[in-house]
């Protein structure tokens, strides 16, 4: 009986902790959004965030996409050969990249690159009293640090996903034409014909959702960081873990919404 009660207590505590965490993150996100739409605005901070999150992420997004597109083309060709379906490489690469791999891989790269850097930067600012200094200088840290980053990620990550989709398809095209003997014009024509507007819309919507998740997690963990180097380390690690898991869960949910039959 005691063992059962102990087990139930552990489950109950876990549930309460999880619900508490969901509540705190939701509240934080609502505050961040409210600060995005209410003045004062900090255009210089926003421009810096656009540059850091969007422009500087292009190389890693491009490289990830091109290699993934190429590998996907090889896999589909090899797998398709088992039932004489090698010809579907352009279509499956296009749908695979645009619907799933493009947004997910870009999202995960953003979680690795941007979420970690936001969390480490804000946590260091907290540990070194820079957040307190902002407050004493009549500047709301949510407005100055969080809102510009969340808005910039919301805008730039869909763009990065679009770029990743194009480069991923280009990777498949290069492998298809150079290694697998596809006709270049036919490959492109098949890709364009097969993609539907909903594929592209779902890709961009996922990008926007992943941008918000990645930036909010970075900011949330940074702002709630503990003391010292260990606190900064924990915040950084926690932010990337949470962003990656939430991002994949959101991907599942959005795929269900867009493509449930």
């Amino acid at each position: 009986m005691n063992a059962l009660m102990l087990f139930l207590a552990v489950i109950g505590r876990l549930m309460l902790d999880t619900l508490g965490a969901i509540g705190r993150v939701s509240q934080f996100t609502a505050r961040a959004v409210s600060h995005i739409v209410r003045p004062p605005f900090y255009p210089r901070e926003f421009a810096n965030a656009l540059m850091n999150i969007g422009w500087l992420s292009l190389p890693v997004v491009g490289l990830t996409a091109v290699f993934t597109g190429g590998a996907l083309a090889l896999q589909i060709y090899a797998g398709g050969a088992r039932f004489n379906a090698e010809a579907v490489v352009p279509q499956i690469v296009a749908i695979g990249i645009v619907r799933e791999l493009g947004p997910v891989l870009v999202g995960l790269m953003i979680a690795a690159r941007v979420t970690s850097s936001i969390a480490a930067e804000i946590a260091t600012m907290k540990v070194t009293e820079q957040i307190d200094a902002l407050v004493t200088l009549s500047t709301n840290p949510m407005k100055y640090l969080v809102a510009p980053r969340v808005l910039a990620a919301f805008i730039t990550v869909p763009m990065l996903v679009a770029v990743g989709d194009v480069i991923g398809i280009a990777g498949g095209y290069l492998v298809g034409v150079q290694n697998l003997g596809f006709n270049a014009a036919a490959y492109l024509q098949n890709t364009v014909d097969f993609l539907e507007p909903i594929d592209i819309i779902s890709s961009l919507v996922k990008g926007a959702a992943f941008g918000v998740i990645a930036s909010v997690m970075g900011c949330y963990y940074g702002m709630s960081s503990g003391r010292g180097a260990q606190g900064v380390g924990r915040a950084t690690k926690g932010s990337v873990e949470a962003a990656a898991v939430l991002l994949l869960a959101a991907n599942f949910l959005l795929t269900g919404i867009f493509f449930s039959v």
Partner: peptide, 20 residues
């Protein structure tokens, strides 16, 4: 609160200067 804080200046122990 802004008007209240505008009356204060503070020197922090570690300086708390903004690195960027």
């Amino acid at each position: 609160r802004d008007a209240f804080l505008a009356r204060f200046g503070m020197l922090f122990q570690g300086g708390a200067l903004f690195d960027s």
